[in-house]
Amino acid sequence: MTISIKKIDEKGNVSRYLVKGTSPALINAIRRSVMLHTPCLAIEDVSIYQNGSVLFDEMLAHRLGMLPIKTDKTYKLGDKVKLVVEKEGPCTVYGKDIKSTDPKIDITDKNIPITKLSKNQKLKVEMQAVMMPGKEHAKWQPAIVSYNEIPALAVSKECNGCADCEKACPINIIEMKGKKPVLKDQYNCTLCGACVDSCGKEALKLSFNKEEYILAIEPVAGLSQKEVIEGSIKAMVEKSKGFAKSLQKLK
């Protein structure tokens, strides 16, 4: 069984893929591997030299820790990078004010407000970002990954072509072709089941293909969708290799 992947669409930062020849267990393993074992950069240590803002040091450090940092491919688990921010009020300190010592590393979202400084208030902070997997803390999750089933509309003989299901669909993706309802856009179906409930003859059923799934990936750490999946598979392969090694020692 070969697994294939094809892009369905891309909306802003979110890409959706059609994965064929897989199972819920496998696709969930990929999802969990991205969440737990694929490393990315996040701020871990913060040295505060001056914090004149009304935010307490702890809150400021927490906000800095949540920041999305553009992760470079060359960085490996445990690698560190130093970042600095220095500002004087009155102003709002944004993500773009943070300077990195490595030109490859940057804050992905430059418009994130970190704190506000009023007149004569100063901020001087040094930070250290570390490559870690999401298992340690959710701030190291490189992407938000989800998967869902692809529905198909199964119409039985009882259907009289009343088009109630067409009217019931909240996102208007059911179309009457001849006298039978057809699901126009199965990739955007929200699986609400309004069509099934609306049918007076109980002629409709949503059926699912057990081997095809939609995988949605929304990177947050500046890695591309492909790099995120590659990283997750690499982590899974390494884990299995370790298991195979210890299996050989088993008598």
């Binding site: 993500g95 979202d109 407000p113 947050v220």
Partner: peptide, 9 residues
């Protein structure tokens, strides 16, 4: 875990 602060303003 989606970053939201950037679009708030």
């Amino acid at each position: 875990g989606k970053q939201l602060a950037g679009v708030y303003e």
